[in-house]
Design a protein around this nucleic acid. Sequence first.
DNA 1: TGACTATAATTAGGCGCCATATTATTCGGT
DNA 2: ACCGAATAATATGGCGCCTAATTATAGTCA
Lengths: 185, 185
Amino acid sequence: MQMLEQKHMALLAEAERRERAPTDNIRACFELLALTGAIDRDCAVRLARHRLSEGKFVLLFLLHDKPEGLSPHELAERAGVTRATITGLLDGLERDGFIVRRGGLSDRRKIAVALTEVGQTAAGELFREHTEWVASLFQGFTAADRQTLTGLLQRIWRNLETGKQQAGQERAGKQQIGQDEDARA
Amino acid sequence: MQMLEQKHMALLAEAERRERAPTDNIRACFELLALTGAIDRDCAVRLARHRLSEGKFVLLFLLHDKPEGLSPHELAERAGVTRATITGLLDGLERDGFIVRRGGLSDRRKIAVALTEVGQTAAGELFREHTEWVASLFQGFTAADRQTLTGLLQRIWRNLETGKQQAGQERAGKQQIGQDEDARA
DNA sequence: TGACTATAATTAGGCGCCATATTATTCGGT
DNA sequence: ACCGAATAATATGGCGCCTAATTATAGTCA
């Protein structure tokens, strides 16, 4: 069951042919990406059954205990996406009857986004369902297992950060002073 | 450095508040997703510097040793995306001068997609750069480390598949016979 | 007050992905 | 030779995400 994606198998085959960089490492990376890709797809399929996406689900759950509503601005911050993205998600949620936009606040630039009955119900049921599903993916894992995994992942994190810094320095070197356009990342 | 995404932190906090499903498992899952999310974003940033996306890069590399070109159909198969997606990627690649579409084949429905000089050069340089970057993420990993990681990931795979089957059965039960719309996944 | 600046939400446009048409061409069978 | 089925590429429209531009409103300060 070494599930790799099509594109990754092609890339790996070529890398092996060229005997370039350590292909074992590449394979390991692709295994990681394939798994999370599958998780994301499964997540999307599950939520799609309720006319939701992951982004929409997050908004629903952020609003579930806020009867007075939140502003798009706050939603963007808490969900970690831009306000423009929020606008799009809200359009869909409003169309499907999960939320309402309320105006008429003291600051007339702002609006309040709140759940409808339907949204409230969906939020409640789905939060339970979703967290149980996520937890089930690690069924059978002991604390030690999780610890081991976390340790390995952190080592990858560090390598990733190191690579970013190096790339930044190289580019800065090439173009004199060179602002780091990756600062946000 | 327990890097989690904004949305995941919000979800986790709420899950902890409700003391629902084992939050340690949820946290572990989110760590996994956060890491691969960061890898994907970094990958996108690196390729964007060359006016490429991951999808486009895959096509470039699939074409690099095919001077006579490949059909969109073949590209779709090898890249693991639909033909419609290929059309879009090719539009961009053609606009940016990486590839050309050639007609006039014996089967007049088909076209051949081939790299230009520019595309050829880019493909060569980027393949090296990209594989080295991917491999560098696992720098310092021993064979045993990789083995450990693969083992853990496979356990998650199995849990994921199990969950899919169960969900399928439940839905099949609800709606009498119920075709399995997940067969493709 | 009036101009400037900051902030809120939205729009516009782009990208990658998808599913579902649509159009052109080929091929099989009678 | 012709009809219908299969196949190739593309068009269309949707979704989620982004950045940059736009519009409305608020607050500040000379």
